[in-house]
Design a protein around this nucleic acid. Structure first.
Lengths: 295, 295
DNA sequence: AAACCAATGATCCATATGTTTCATACTATA
DNA sequence: TATAGTATGAAACATATGGATCATTGGTTT
């Protein structure tokens, strides 16, 4: 339990001034915060051997509008688990009161921030690692992401291009995207990115690859995504945002982490490859730091 | 998230034979187990966008006596999860260096999370809002992002495409990307995305547009980026990561927030446009939820 | 076309919930 | 001892909740 819970500290601080019954209630709340979040007030009162009204009185005593708020706070604490990082983010939400328009922005960004923090959970990390391992041992990496997931697939492929020539982006004009699979073998792996609603074409191409013996790994949004069943490894990314659209930011973050893990797997080779890219692009005069003069 | 939860596995196993509404409910339950434990059934139903009765039906479908049992099981999982989590963390600490890879991942993800949280600062929010305002009043929005920023530009354009036809992506085969600017006027705005190293072509096209009177807004990485000087509005995004590569996750997040602000500006129109898209794509049979059968 | 069936939505119901009110018991001060 | 003030318990209240019922829909089969 994180000791940095403001409500808990308040209860402890005011404990001495409480009446005996309030103390008994407060003590139970302190000792069993999960129960407060999970069961009804009357039940908590029964466990604490206290009248239901006492729980309400406790909440009011603490300056809260009612018992519901007390439970809500315990629920929030439980939701975030021991992830102190997300807790800090959440804390800021209540502080700031800004313009209406930037409220939307703030909510979205803080939500995304929390989602990324959550990706640090052991389960996600394990999946990341396993997927990276699978990709490392591949001869070729076919990257597939259609429609909304195109951006993620493209970027993953772009970064991988900087590291070598193992990556093949399954995307081409006139529906020729899948053609690169012609010479795919069982030594290869395909990274499929797809979120709800799942593009039919992506599923079909992935299925085709699988039947050719290509190993499938995926980034998708749910345990019941059709990709899960056909993948050797899957990384789950949240996509909810309080806007009209699903967010791809967590998916991109995952993709970038995967690239990093792959790059770090062989640092010397990575460094060499990057230097090579630098030289090549500087010869092509690709980059600039000044506003171009035009005549 | 404990992957070995019998109830979860049962839901996953039976997911395929559920009716669409049940699937929708089940999907939410799988993706948000904490909410099931913490809030009322009706609220869960609201979040999952299903009828309250559907939640009851889901519980019965799973062989449980009622929804209460479903919540009880999730509550139990959460209870043991909260103190089980600390144990897992401790375990990881004891294991020590065994998982170097997930250390990298954790660092990256937490760093990204912090960067997104930082974007909520007043200055960033002001810039976001100003940029969104500028984009709203535009006749056409030309979107330009080359090389590493292509993914961001593409995704912004993709989302804007769902909302209407104001967006034009400046990207084409054979170096024809800038051609769409032929009919650009001073009523139009160009959104340029570029980070260091700045692609020379992007700067040139932007400069060309500016000389045609097109308003420039940009997403870039520094106050001294060449884009700042030529832009009416600029949003700064961090790009540092402890990997070899610059991260584009914050830039994507910003782009998504911009899209949301634009969408929210005219909710009725947005909803109508999205519905239109839905119909169109469903007629094209674009999406699927099942693994495609192949013969 | 007709008839059936499962699936979904809308409505109603009994109950449990959080809160309030009121009466009683307790304690401290004069 | 009398009394004011508080703490506690019991009961009543409006409401929200989970569950059940019935009508409607949409797709299949005969």
């Amino acid at each position: 339990m994180p000791p940095s819970d403001p409500l808990r500290e308040q209860i402890i601080a005011q404990y001495d001034v409480m009446s005996p019954q309030l103390q008994q209630a407060a003590r139970y709340v302190l000792d069993h915060p999960e129960e407060v979040a999970l069961v009804s007030m009357r039940e908590v009162a029964r466990y604490a051997a206290v009248q239901p009204a006492t729980m309400t009185r406790l909440a009011k005593f603490l300056g809260l509008p009612g018992y519901d708020e007390l439970r809500a706070q315990h629920a929030a604490a439980l939701r975030q688990g021991s992830d102190g990082f997300a807790a800090k983010v959440r804390q800021r939400v209540d502080e700031g009161r800004e313009t209406v328009a930037s409220d939307t922005a703030t909510h979205m960004l803080q939500g995304l921030s929390a989602q990324l923090a959550k990706l640090c959970e052991p389960d996600s990390l394990r999946r990341l690692e396993a997927t990276a391992d699978r990709l490392m041992s591949a001869r070729k990496i076919y990257v597939l992401g259609l429609r909304s997931c195109h951006a993620i697939a493209w970027h993953f492929h772009y970064v991988m291009t900087l590291l070598g020539d193992r990556s093949v982006h399954l995307d081409g004009p006139g529906g020729t995207g899948g053609d690169a699979l012609i010479r795919a073998t069982s030594e290869d792996v395909m990274l499929v990115i797809s979120i709800k609603p799942y593009a039919r074409d992506a599923l079909e191409v992935a299925q085709l690859a699988k039947e050719k013996g290509v190993g499938i790994v995926s980034i998708t949004d749910s345990e019941v995504s059709p990709l899960v069943a056909m993948s050797a490894q899957t990384i789950l990314c949240p996509t909810e945002s309080d806007s009209f659209f699903h967010t791809l930011t967590p998916a991109l973050a995952i993709s970038e982490v995967l690239c990093s893990l792959l790059a770090e797997f062989d640092r010397p080779k990575t460094l060499e490859a990057l230097q090579q890219v630098d030289e090549h692009l500087s010869h092509l005069n690709t980059y600039s730091t000044a506003i171009p003069r035009r005549q």
